[in-house]
């Protein structure tokens, strides 16, 4: 069993192979935590999506989750710049979804922005893990793109929320140092190249209890991202924690309080 906390899909044509990914996930027994950042007709992923675009993305994610209840966990996409609307959108999605679920935040605003706080309070209330994109790029970040230090601020401000630390900070050496000592963060392995020593370093600074498997598929292959785990010098127990046990335990908190996933 594997839980992949970082998977994308998009509306309309399927140039990135989501159907291929679903088939491979079935073969490898991977549960996919899916978010959509790409509304229909958009050239790519809008950095600052409108309310309608967010709803369209989440409608598509909900549709996929309903069609694949044993394979997909929806991760609701929100734009914190929408403030009240973002909270209403999340409350409506949670009310309508009987299964496990989480939240995905990307680059609309940097994640240390106070506009995230009402959303985080809802996430704490519903025990929704938050996949927050982070990257520290020596080549320069996107506007609104959170750095690992931004997420550290947010995680300290909301100790009752569990965060999937997107891409482990991109530059995982930088991200690992920023996440050190935070009990409510889980380094997401998804995206980037399968560097030699990646997981070993995260285990050293965060321990295997605070790492979760993510792929960033379909842009990245499952093979390359799984290789980060299988190529690490860790024992079987640590490998199982990373591949599914840590994420499973986080989502299980929802089951104990809401009956979700039954």
């Amino acid at each position: 069993m594997i839980i992949d906390v970082h998977v994308h899909t998009r509306l309309g044509p399927d140039p990135y192979g989501f159907q291929y990914l679903l088939e491979q996930a079935a073969e490898l027994d991977v549960t996919l935590c899916v978010n959509s950042l790409s509304p229909e007709g958009a050239a790519g992923m809008p950095y600052d999506p409108s309310e309608e675009e967010v709803q369209q993305c989440n409608d598509w994610t909900a549709e996929l989750a309903v069609a694949n209840p044993d394979r997909i966990i929806p991760m609701w996409y929100l734009n914190p710049a929408h403030e009240d609307f973002a909270c209403r959108e999340l409350e409506q999605r949670v009310a309508a979804c009987s299964g496990l679920q989480g939240v995905k935040l990307w680059v609309a605003v940097r994640c240390n922005d106070p506009r995230l706080d009402p959303i985080m309070r809802l996430c704490a209330e519903h025990k929704l893990p938050v996949l927050q994109h982070t990257w520290f790029k020596v080549t320069g970040n996107l506007p609104g793109e959170s750095t690992p230090m931004d997420l550290r601020e947010l995680a300290l401000r909301h100790p009752d929320v569990s965060f999937f630390w997107g891409h482990s900070g991109g530059d995982y050496e930088y991200g690992a140092k920023c996440a050190r000592g935070l009990p409510n963060v889980y380094m997401d392995l998804g995206g980037g190249e399968a560097m030699n020593g990646y997981v070993d370093l995260l285990v050293e600074y965060e321990t295997a209890d605070h790492i979760v498997f993510g792929s960033d598929a379909p842009g990245r292959s499952l093979s390359s991202q799984l290789a980060k785990v299988y190529g690490a010098h860790i024992d079987d127990e640590e490998r199982e924690k990373i591949l599914y046990r840590n994420a499973q335990a986080l989502f299980a908190r929802q089951e104990t309080t809401t009956g979700a996933g039954s």
Binding site: Y16, G17, Y20, L21, P218
Partner: peptide
């Protein structure tokens, strides 16, 4: 360094 997309 061919590490995606799926089906690469």
């Amino acid at each position: 360094r061919v590490q995606g997309p799926v089906g690469d």
